[in-house]
Design a protein around this nucleic acid. Structure first.
Lengths: 113, 113
DNA sequence: ACCGGCCATCGACGTTTGTCAATACGATGA
DNA sequence: TCATCGTATTGACAAACGTCGATGGCCGGT
């Protein structure tokens, strides 16, 4: 889970992407290509502390706790979210580097930050 | 097909994204979230003329012509590719504005161009 | 008018995905 | 120790997806 090595990243508009690169980047996009997961990442990223408790995330959606947990696992497995357990609660935080790697796909100038 | 109105686009890291926004953007990401389609867009975008003939794209993959045609349709339906028939051949070109809209998701500074 | 090449569509298939109800796990408090 | 609360996991199901072979529609050349 959460393998580094991430994208990084012939941008789409430069020279053609290799099959290997495509196979590595596609899972990141696939993880983000869901309305619920997009909102989850957005919610976590826009929180003042930079992280969010699962208990709060559950309330933001009209979905079962099991479903939210599943989506969080998908995002974590893709390397887009960090997971930390504190006491009874679990906090997720977005990995900015992973997001930056995806951004590099579309805008060559956006990669290093 | 190929609806405009596209993303545009509370970036992921700013304030939280609305459910409606997420529903609009997710299909774009879903269209890109496949290794073959990623390479297709990359191939087309990186060609010197900015477009590519289907006959050339077919040769770049170890897949049936029907499968490539299907992927091109998905990208076109999502609004990411323009389609133009010239004689017997069909040429696809990437819609830079659509790509820019997706880029705006990740990097707030990358949106207008 | 015919044939041949380019591309799209159709029908079918196995696989993956999103969702839920139910259950299991782990930590806290009584 | 036991009940409770917050999360994760399991099993099940319908829907969507990626791929293929076969077929159909256009266009250009003969």
């Amino acid at each position: 889970m959460s393998d580094p090595g991430l994208a990084c990243c012939t941008p789409l508009t430069g020279t053609a992407m290799s099959a290997d690169q495509a196979e590595r980047v596609a899972p990141l996009l696939k993880a983000l290509a869901d309305p619920v997961r997009l909102r989850l990442v957005s919610l976590i990223a826009s929180s003042t502390t930079g992280e969010a408790c699962v208990c709060d995330l559950n309330d933001a959606f009209d979905l079962t706790q099991a479903t939210i947990s599943h989506h969080l696992k998908v995002l974590h497995s893709a390397g887009l979210l960090d997971r930390e357990k504190r006491g009874v609660w679990v906090y997720y935080a977005v990995r900015r580097d992973a997001l930056a790697a995806v951004a590099g796909l579309f805008d060559p100038a956006a990669v290093p930050a």
